[in-house]
Nucleic acid binder design. Structure first.
Length: 261
DNA sequence: ATGGTTGGTAGCCAA
């Protein structure tokens, strides 16, 4: 079973690219971030016609996440628990099931960017990460195959970018952001891309600006964290880097795992 | 090179 995550940076601008990638990659489950539309604006009918079940947690203009799955989706949870005043659509949790059994629980995550760090955006990011850690702790007690996947907006290590000094003042590389990510991972998750791909020059995002793609000035910020029960089923993980060179690309590329499930 | 580009929206804000 192939489970993918992709920040598509706007479904309206990415429709053709998204369909092209679906035909090529044929994911069993796709977690999408930054759809930038309300639920009704997502082309669910197009993907239902391709045999996918679709759940959307949208928002006008900003954020918005969706999960598309060939297998039925159950136990759908919209929004990250822990703050009823948080109106941003950044979290969507599902259980992928067959008629007989549940295969995996999957959380589709669009973690706050947090820039600029001198504004309220950075503490919002850190409190969101605390909420994620608390919720993940509860989910791990279920002792089931669990994937926390999406755009984390965190560069975990120095080798996950080309020049760490260039990111020194960025929320994606702050010590608080990185230690929060490490705490989450150390609850008992495997970083699947870290485990399966080279440690250096393995990126999932290249900025539109300043020729970042042409210079391979990227960062690794899209992650698949696997519980031990999911990691036991891990066959391989990969990055569909070539989509970044397509016409009108997202600034992120698809990242995926293949599970023996 | 503290620049540069893209998306959503209809101003600039977010990334």
């Amino acid at each position: 079973m192939k489970i993918a995550t992709w920040n598509i940076n706007g479904i309206k601008a990415r429709n053709d690219v998204l369909l092209r990638w679906f035909d090529e990659a044929a994911p069993d489950v796709a977690c999408l971030q930054e759809i930038k539309t309300v639920d009704e604006g997502f082309p669910s009918d197009v993907f239902e016609a391709k045999g996918y079940n679709v759940v959307v947690h949208g928002q006008k203009s900003f954020n918005g996440v969706a999960v598309l799955s060939k297998l039925p989706l159950e136990d759908v949870r919209r929004g990250l628990p822990g703050d009823d005043s948080d109106v941003q659509s950044r979290y969507l949790e599902v259980v992928v099931s067959t008629p007989d059994t549940s295969v995996a629980r999957i959380a589709c995550i669009y973690l706050p960017n947090g820039n600029p760090i001198a504004t309220e955006k950075f503490p919002y990011k850190l409190s969101w990460m605390e909420r994620l850690e608390r919720h993940a702790t509860e989910l791990l007690e279920l002792e089931e195959p669990l994937l926390l996947t999406g755009d984390y907006n965190v560069i975990p290590e120095h080798e996950d970018c080309t020049s760490p000094e260039a990111w020194a003042d960025d929320a994606l590389f702050q010590p608080e952001s990185r230690s929060a990510f490490k705490r989450l991972k150390n609850l008992g998750f495997l970083d699947a891309v870290r485990a399966c791909e080279p440690a250096h020059h393995t990126y999932t995002f290249w900025d539109y600006q300043a020729g970042a793609w042409q210079k391979n000035n990227g960062i690794r910020i899209d992650h698949l964290l696997l519980s031990s029960q999911a990691a036991d089923k891990l066959i391989t993980a990969g990055i569909d880097k070539h989509t970044r060179s397509w016409e009108r690309p997202s600034d992120h590329v698809p990242v995926w795992v293949e599970l023996d499930a």
